[in-house]
């Protein structure tokens, strides 16, 4: 479905000089040959920056969900959503920034550890409810899940111990069912 008429025809607020904001855009896309490429290509061709991108299957077998975190002022983000809507394979685009939503990100962090530092790292893990998923004499690998801020925070705490490798999934998000009007 295209966005409603009313929405399209309402001029979006915000002066052009407004600060760039982070937007979480949720995209349902048909599993068609080249569809992801088309989306990524659109961002590249229009010169839009992506902070993170995650993609996976949904309850509908023919459709995947992409969650893209992009940065830009309101006019840029409005263009991004409109350009995405123009892509034929896209089923739905929602800018969650204008909605209430739940989001999670998962990170795997492999951090240097010694007998001396291990307890301290474990303590940090506990505070963040992170799990130890791998251990070796010189490293610990932690798995943490949470909002982007929480993931950022644990990474910050682990940095002093020297992070050897890390993998983040990027943000996934869903709109909340109750939008606060209840």
């Amino acid at each position: 479905m295209p966005p409603s008429q009313a929405m399209l025809n309402t001029p979006s607020p915000g002066a052009p000089d407004e600060k760039a904001k982070r937007h979480t855009i949720s995209i349902l896309v048909q599993n068609k040959f080249g569809a992801f490429n088309r989306i990524a290509g659109m961002f590249a061709a229009k010169g839009y920056n992506i902070d993170s991108l995650s993609v996976g299957p949904t309850e509908d077998e023919g459709v995947s969900r992409m969650t893209i975190v992009a940065r830009g002022d309101d006019q840029i983000i409005e263009q991004i959503t409109k350009q995405l809507n123009k892509l034929i394979d896209i089923v739905k685009v929602i800018d969650l920034t204008f909605e209430s939503f739940v989001d999670r990100e998962l990170v795997l962090v492999k951090v240097h550890s010694t007998n001396d530092t291990r307890p301290e790292i474990m303590q940090i893990a506990e505070i963040f409810r992170a799990k130890v998923v791998d251990i070796s004499p010189r490293t610990l690998t932690l798995e943490a899940t949470g909002s982007q801020q929480k993931v950022d925070a644990i990474i910050k705490m682990l940095k002093p111990f020297a992070i050897k490798e890390m993998a983040r999934t990027g943000r996934v998000a869903l709109k909340r069912e109750f939008q606060g009007e209840v």
Partner: peptide, 17 residues
């Protein structure tokens, strides 16, 4: 007819798709 053509280069007061 193209929503993406609107407010792409110039902000307008009354867009009509």
């Amino acid at each position: 007819v193209d929503p993406a053509a609107i407010s792409k280069n110039v902000k307008v007061d009354v867009p009509i798709v």
